[in-house]
């Protein structure tokens, strides 16, 4: 008998509430796409914003709404792109190559002097408001770590010499630091490319560069002459190596009068 009442009570309550909810739910149907949640689960969840949307959820919504590309999550890379494509039922797109941030300045504190002493907020943007920055070279890294601060993946750190160091393992090539650097010294490049590059961004004339930095490119064109592949051009007194032509022969490294040409993958990386 007791068993019976129990069944009736719970069953009755279930019926009453279930019925109420069923009626209510019928009148207030809300469209939901389960794929948003699924994709959101796949994403790294750092809410870094590299995709151009204000967070992972937003990106997922836009992917489902076909407003964002499945490969949009840069930190996620190829794997996540594939998974998203699977959820969305489309063919996989996106590049295979692992990319990392690269810093194009070698002007550490000891080789690229300051023109005056700066006291105040330790932030590159803040420091630039004073006479265009305290560094004598007006293209060089100020070394106050605004880029390191901006990295959502803890992949950039300031070295003892005042230059940032990229942690290649952690770097996801999200590009936040590229935007953070007020001197545009960071770029995203293939992690494993085998070519040489010139870690300098100074467009000053050679004479000026020699005054303000020991490791700046003077645009002397010695490397241009040395390169058997014609992969190097000098524009605005700055040598640029075309990585598609470079065969990594190393002639330019020997030719460079300031010995600043390096293997691309070996600069500023931990």
């Amino acid at each position: 008998m007791e068993l019976f009442t129990a069944l009736i009570v719970i069953g009755g309550m279930g019926l009453v509430f279930g019925g109420l909810l069923a009626v209510a739910a019928k009148h207030f149907a809300v469209e939901e796409d389960a794929r948003v949640e699924t994709i959101c689960d796949l994403l790294p969840g750092a809410n870094c914003g590299a995709c151009g949307f204000p967070g992972c959820i937003s990106f997922a919504e836009n992917v489902v709404g076909l407003k964002a590309d499945a490969s949009g999550c840069i930190p996620g890379g190829k794997d996540i792109c594939d998974s998203i494509c699977k959820v969305m039922g489309i063919d996989s797109v996106g590049s295979e190559v692992k990319k990392v941030a690269e810093i194009s300045c070698l002007g550490s504190r000891d080789v690229a002097p300051d023109k005056f002493e700066y006291h105040g907020v330790r932030d590159c943007n803040a420091a630039l408001a004073f006479s265009g920055g305290f560094k004598a070279c007006k293209y060089g890294c100020l070394g106050l770590g605004t880029c390191a601060e901006s990295c959502p993946f803890d992949a950039l750190h300031m070295g003892d010499n005042g230059l940032p160091i990229v942690d290649r393992e952690r770097c996801t090539a999200c590009g936040i630091c590229v935007k953070a650097c007020p001197r545009d010294l960071i770029r995203i490049a293939d992690a494993d490319r085998t070519c040489k590059y010139v870690p300098c961004n100074s467009k000053d004339k050679g004479k000026v560069v020699r005054e303000v930095c020991e490791v700046g490119c003077t645009g002397c064109k010695a490397c241009v002459k040395a390169c058997p592949q014609d992969a190097i051009v000098v524009e605005d007194s700055l040598a640029v190596i075309d990585s598609s032509k470079c065969d990594n022969c190393g002639e330019c490294v020997d030719a460079c009068r300031r010995s600043i040409i390096k293997d691309a993958a070996k600069v500023h990386h931990a």
């Binding site: 023109k115 005056f116 002493e117 700066y118 305290f134």
Partner: peptide, 9 residues
């Protein structure tokens, strides 16, 4: 001989 100091007011 030292460099000038620049800071915010």
């Amino acid at each position: 001989d030292k460099k000038l100091v620049v800071s915010s007011s």
